[in-house]
Nucleic acid binder design. Structure first.
Lengths: 202, 202, 202, 202
DNA sequence: GATGAATGAGCCTTCATTCAT
DNA sequence: AATGAATGAAGGCTCATTCAT
């Protein structure tokens, strides 16, 4: 009758609870400083039970990265519906800058990346996520270019997609390096728009 | 007796030893995984003695950040001697991309930033460093613009400087997200050059 | 309805399943390293249900010891049918040595004994088992001696039975101390036969 | 000046403290039930410091086994000075039986052996110890036989040494299987003497 | 200045056991 | 009878930091 309370579904819901709790703790304290005990308490379950849902602490960040990746892909997909991509991006530049400037979220992302550079399993997840996002970014650029995409030299689209990623990732870094950054969003927006045109227009 | 081995000088040299050792360990293992014992061994002194030179472990990364900052400022200063800045940057784009793609170094930087978002003392150091670098970046841009700098709307230079920083920091992130990145440097270079023109030319 | 699947009978069969699974796990991993979860999985039932059949983990080894004891008693009883016990034992010495040199089985027995020295409940089971086996050993020796048994000083039979037990238990220990032992079985057999004569012949 | 307080010597003394404490705890609670915290407390030092002296908990039993082995070898060596070995052994049979019947010590030995069957590092230590003791046992037997040793078939000495070991190890097992064993020492002694003659006399 | 022995809090993880269903 | 989700105590081990020498 109730497909939503299938054992597996329950476990899935519990996993989400843990992921939410862990993300919160990681943001608050950092990955290493957040203890499993704290995560368990935040998730409203016992430390031991977390290990029925995840292999270990590393497995939790890996799952967070995967979930975030799906989230990003979803947002990109929604974007792709847009008629004139570039116009939309230019219209929302200030907002995009703000979104990439949430310090707590940024810190978590940076820490995950640092961790990934030494944890092979996490590295795999991160790189596969990135590969998916990069592919979508290329699609976005092609879509924005329309038929003129075919005239570009090989590698050009890839180069643009990478730098588009770098630009937004760079904002994330800046938000930690200069938490006052948000005050400068108005100053950055016009310049940003010019860069977006370079990346997405012919 | 000998002025060159004044206690203070000796201590300074010892500090450098520790900083070198710590940077090496941090790059190799990460900030949290590198133990004081390992750092002490690498630096060729006892763990206890490190505490005569630094207040604690956090203090060591703070000092590393400061030293790195001075290094960057020095390189920027050398750059400022250049006649035609933009030409030089365009000529060295590939090399600049490569330099920002050293994974181990990148990981350490990201970890430091993540740490800084939760450690006020480190945050201060990071933000002051960033402020200095940002000021230099603005000088660079002004210099590149020449007298036309004065025609720009207020905040424009700051916006450019910030995005210039974001772009390079973004490459650092990318080098962790896509360690295969270096293969794409040739594809990125032409696009990168166009972006540099947007940021540094009138 | 069907007498052969009476609740009690079913429970008994389930208990055997658990004992088989547990013995296997204990042999493979050791008593402490074998988890109830693993035993349950091996037995093809849930961890929770094991607690409907046994009071706790200790209770399981106790039951294994009891079962093993019955097994040994059965084999001794079969032996007792023999016309000339001593001849039979001398004929099968090599085989007996081999049987007592199975490392995995030996390890489990030693572990159980160690455990018994601190767990009163298990101690009771072990000591009662041993008492039964010892009585049978005395019968065996008496049978082998025939009417000459009556000429022996009091306690002599008990002394022989104990040392007979010690000798075989010693082989078990040796099989762990020297896993290469089986290579030496041929060297031990002749000596062993002389010792058996000392213990079982007049 | 004081060679006995050399750093290395101090560490050695600390190690002995730990070994004494650990042996006591292991005898009292068993290897798995004895916690490092308890051992540390018994040894009068912090848990952390034990890890400056030993690699881990397993390393501690390994060291205990090695120390015990040296102890046994020492006692055998003292025995070897004896003019008439067999006479001495026959004279001290009751005492030897008693010595091998200390339940607590026996339990520890059995547990170590069980552990060794699954822990390769410990297995190495146990087997090397056993090899040394076995060699000494062969020497003992040769010495007892005098020149008649040369008339024996090859392997005979080894067979005797192994069974000599088995016999005493068997007593250790019996002391756990039948803690009341000591009451039977008088009954066992005469039989034991005959077995010793079989093993050590021509 | 320099050592390194020593501390002890705290972490991740495991697992026997329980209980609602 | 049977499940398996859930608990929570406890364990081995690490490591920043201190301090007597």
């Amino acid at each position: 009758m109730t497909a939503s309370t299938t054992p597996s579904d329950r476990a899935l819901a519990r996993r989400q609870q843990v992921l939410d709790a862990a993300a919160e703790c990681f943001r608050r304290r950092g990955f290493h400083a957040a203890s499993m005990a704290e995560i368990a308490k935040t998730a409203g379950m016992s430390p031991g039970h977390i290990y029925n849902l995840f292999e270990n602490k590393d497995d939790i960040i890996a799952a967070i990265v995967e979930r975030d990746c799906e989230d990003v892909l979803g947002r990109i997909a929604a974007f792709q519906q847009e008629e004139d991509l570039l116009q939309r991006m230019l219209a929302e530049t200030e907002q995009a800058i703000d979104e990439h400037s949430q310090v707590a979220e940024a810190a978590l992302q940076l820490e995950v990346l640092a961790e990934a550079s030494r944890n092979p399993k996490l590295a795999t997840v991160v790189q596969q996520s990135e590969a998916l996002v990069n592919r979508k970014a290329q699609e976005l650029i092609r879509q924005s270019l329309g038929e003129r995409a075919d005239d570009l030299p090989p590698g050009e689209i890839q180069g643009r997609a990478l730098l588009l990623g770098a630009l937004f990732n760079g904002l994330t870094v800046l938000s930690v390096r200069q938490p006052a950054l948000s005050q400068h969003a108005p100053a950055m927006a016009p310049v940003m728009r010019r860069m977006l045109r370079v990346l997405m227009a012919p």
